[in-house]
Structure formats: C-alpha cells, structure tokens
C-alpha cells in the first residue's frame, strides 16, 4: 500500500489558487480545509484536493436506491419506511418517504393499489434531498421485491409476470421489480 497522509477536520490543505476543493473539504477565506478525517487525495491532473473518509453518514441522497416497507396507503400516495440505503452503511434509524402514484411507472397507473400495498417490500430511487423523501419506481429494477397475499398473508410467487398466491390461487397486480425475490 502506498504511503497515505491522514488528515483531520480543520486541517489546511491549500489555497484555492492551487486546488479545486473536492469532497470532504470546504473553502473559507480563499483557503481549503478538510471537513472530515481520512486519507488526503490530491489529483495533480485536475488540480483538485479531496479527503476520503472511512465512513460517510447514511442519509438518503438524490439518486440513491433504497429498500423500503410500505407502512401506509393514501388516495394517491404510498407511505414508505426506508430501512436500507444500497451502498451505504446500516441505518441507526428509519427514514420516512412517499411514493406518489405519478412516480410508479412509465405507464398510466389507475390506482395506487395497482402498484403497491401495505407491507410490501420495495426498491425505489430517491428524488429529493430531505424528508419526507420522494421516491420513484419507474425503472425496471425498481418496484415490489417481496409481497404477501392480502387474503392469507402467505408469500406471493412471481409466475409468468404475475404474483400468485399458491394457497388461495389468486393473483395480485403490482409494480413488480425485475429483482423480485420469489420466482418460480
């Protein structure tokens, strides 16, 4: 491993005439300071300086894919509890989010109940930077990844593009993710 320099917050890294302040830094009075503890990274080509920390706060940001559980249904919006942010460390608290009917899929969705229902586990993308986070399930990978039967509570299995309950022999309509967990 190459020799790396560890910096801590408040350390002066240079002046703005020298470098462009990158991630983990901030600028004040024309000077660049580190805002995090981590490895100092100087990019001589782009003349930028940044700090790579070992940990980053696990907060949803625009573009993050998150896993959530549907905890409430309203007329045109589903209330979602974010339980995991993909690619970030485990959460110490849940974040609340909303999935609006217009953000469910590319096609027209007549009712929010045709997309998700209570207790569904969904994958979604975050589209706003603060709570309540707005979600979108437009991509093929996004949507419901695990759901239970509304009648018996048993697992729903993906069969020929539809979600079936083997107990009751019924199917349910949902915005299904390509990554649905139980496939036949």
């Amino acid at each position: 491993m190459s020799k790396t320099k560890i910096v801590s917050p408040g350390e002066k890294l240079g002046v703005i005439e020298e470098y462009i302040p990158g991630s983990g830094t901030y600028e004040e009075d024309g000077k660049i300071f580190s805002s995090m503890a981590g490895e100092l990274e100087i990019d001589p080509k782009n003349r930028s300086v940044g700090v790579t920390p070992s940990k980053k706060p696990a907060v949803p940001e625009v573009g993050d894919v998150v896993e959530g559980i549907v905890v409430g249904m309203k007329e045109d919006v589903a209330l979602v509890k974010i339980v995991e942010i993909k690619g970030k460390r485990p959460l110490t608290g849940d974040f609340s989010a909303q999935l609006h009917i217009s953000q469910v899929s590319k096609d027209y969705t007549k009712s929010i109940f045709d997309a998700v229902n209570l207790n569904d586990r969904i994958l979604a993308k975050v589209t706003t930077g603060w709570a309540p986070y707005q979600l979108s399930t437009v991509d093929d990978d996004l949507g419901v990844i695990y759901a239970t039967c509304t009648k018996c509570g048993g697992d729903l299995v993906l069969k020929k593009g539809k979600l079936y309950c083997t107990n009751d022999n019924i199917s349910e309509k949902k915005k299904i993710s390509r990554l649905y967990l139980l496939k036949e």
Binding site: S8, M36, K56, P57
Partner: peptide
C-alpha cells in the same frame, strides 16, 4: 462525530 463521518469545520 468525526468517527461518524459527519463533516466538521474543525475539531
């Protein structure tokens, strides 16, 4: 706070 990766002006 530093260990949590929270951006700080200084220690």
């Amino acid at each position: 706070l530093v260990d949590a990766g929270i951006p700080m002006r200084d220690l």
